[in-house]
């Protein structure tokens, strides 16, 4: 997993509630057996005027001029700002894969769906929950400030505005450590292999029907 510690990045606003995983990456692209290459199809139905197909060259497809990521001022954005319940819907990890492949490393929202939230951390994407008033203020700032950037510091657990206004955020200590170090959590879990084995043997004796 790619490490994450500190990022100064351009912010793109996606002003919607309940942005679901079908919108983030539509189902036809889930047929891929790879982890990479989903970026061109991120928000496919909102981004393009035609219906996308897997394996297609997206550079020549007609773009929806009204969709925020197609606006020149948000080109190269690495921080996505959205509203409540971001990432609701399916468990598809293709959603954070697509966001990451496009270039987003941080998602700021008022709340996230549980599975999506957890999937982000496994892929070097940092989802940050901020209070409603801060999210609202950020939307207003982004809208009136061309080239609006934020600095996200995971070690310090802060989001810093260009004027120095600092918004603290909470993050699970274990997930933070994994993200800062780029750790593979399977390797970490396997340090407890003996304990897993012991638990399994005890359970096999107590509830043998589970091991039939």
């Amino acid at each position: 997993m790619e490490k994450f510690n500190r990022l100064e990045g351009l912010v793109a606003p996606l002003d919607r509630v309940n942005v679901d995983t079908d919108a983030i990456i539509p189902k036809q692209f889930l047929k891929s057996i790879k982890r990479s290459g989903f970026g061109p199809n991120l928000f496919d139905e909102w981004r393009y005027m035609d219906v996308g197909q897997p394996g297609q060259d997206c550079s020549a497809r007609p773009k929806n001029p009204n969709f925020v990521l197609n606006q020149e001022r948000y080109r190269g954005a690495s921080i996505l700002l959205s509203r409540k319940n971001f990432g609701c819907g399916s468990s598809r990890e293709h959603a954070p894969w697509a966001l990451l492949d496009y270039g987003f490393r941080v998602i700021l929202a008022e709340s996230f769906a549980d599975i999506f939230f957890s999937n982000c951390f496994k892929n070097g994407v940092l989802p940050i929950v901020l209070p409603a008033n801060e999210i609202e203020a950020l939307f207003q700032l982004v809208n009136v400030t061309p080239g609006f950037k934020l600095t996200v510091d995971l070690s310090a657990q802060t989001v810093v505005c260009p004027d120095g206004h600092t918004i603290p955020f909470a993050v699970d200590p274990f997930r933070k450590e994994c993200l800062i170090n780029g750790w593979d959590d399977i390797g970490l879990t396997l340090r407890h292999a003996d304990k897993i084995g012991e638990y399994e043997e005890r359970r096999r004796a107590e509830q043998p029907w589970l091991f039939a």
């Binding site: 399916s90 468990s91 990890e93 999937n119 292999a193 897993i196």
Partner: peptide
């Protein structure tokens, strides 16, 4: 519970899931 693909791999490799 539903899990992502990294967790599918984690469960295959360790028979466990990290949860709070």
């Amino acid at each position: 519970l539903g899990i992502g693909t990294s967790e599918v791999e984690h469960v295959m490799a360790t028979q466990c899931l990290l949860q709070k």
